[in-house]
């Protein structure tokens, strides 16, 4: 087997590069603690969600307080609205840890808080569960980033992260 010595050097460097990439990703998961959306949200019957009879918090989606500075936000993403999010903004206080539970009663949607790393698919039958720290007061847009039908480009919403002092609890908006 004739392999030029330059090429052998290059193979070694290439393998090193690949290992370096994998190490970076592992660092991101272990160091800053970036976690992937996974199966922890469980499954759900999309037709029950559509009918409002799932027996879960998705029947009355919205913000719920679960502890000091801890909130659960249940969002139903449907053609072509986030509920809550579109008709009224999702409101949480700054400095809180928020767990989003998102599902779809119809087709596949996307949920991206624009300009942040909060980004997930919303698949009928699955509940996307993601925990996020909102440290600072801000107003974010939510964009559906997966094609979901003819009105897809109009599907958007808002999250208001308000100062602690101005926050008057879930449902206060």
């Amino acid at each position: 087997m004739e392999i030029h010595r330059f090429e052998k050097v290059w193979i070694a460097i290439a393998l090193l590069l690949i290992v370096g990439f994998i190490a970076t990703i592992a660092y991101g998961a272990l160091g800053p603690g970036v976690k992937m959306v996974d199966a922890s949200g469980g499954t759900i019957d999309p037709e029950a969600v559509a009918a409002g009879e799932s027996g879960t918090a998705f029947d009355d989606p919205g913000v719920r307080q679960t502890g000091p500075n801890e909130y659960d936000v249940y969002v139903v993403a449907r053609q072509f609205q986030f509920a809550p999010g579109t008709s009224q903004p999702i409101e949480v206080p700054a400095g809180s840890t928020v767990t989003f539970h998102i599902t779809s009663p119809d087709v596949t949607h996307g949920f991206n808080i624009a300009g942040t790393n909060v980004n997930t698919m919303v698949i009928p039958g699955q509940v996307a569960e993601l925990t996020v720290d909102f440290d600072e007061t801000a107003s974010y847009g939510i964009v559906c980033h997966e094609y979901c039908g003819g009105g897809h480009h109009t599907m958007e919403g808002t999250i208001e992260v308000v100062p602690q002092a101005e926050y008057d609890g879930p449902g206060g908006s």
């Binding site: 603690g33 976690k35 992937m36 767990t99 790393n117 909060v118 996020v132």
Partner: peptide, 28 residues
Amino acid sequence: LGYLVLVVLLWVFMYFVEFLGRGPTVIG
């Protein structure tokens, strides 16, 4: 090798500045 250096620099910029430098991020 020039390409390699470019890729490594861009990777570091993308991962540590663009990605980890902007929040919020999913942590759970």
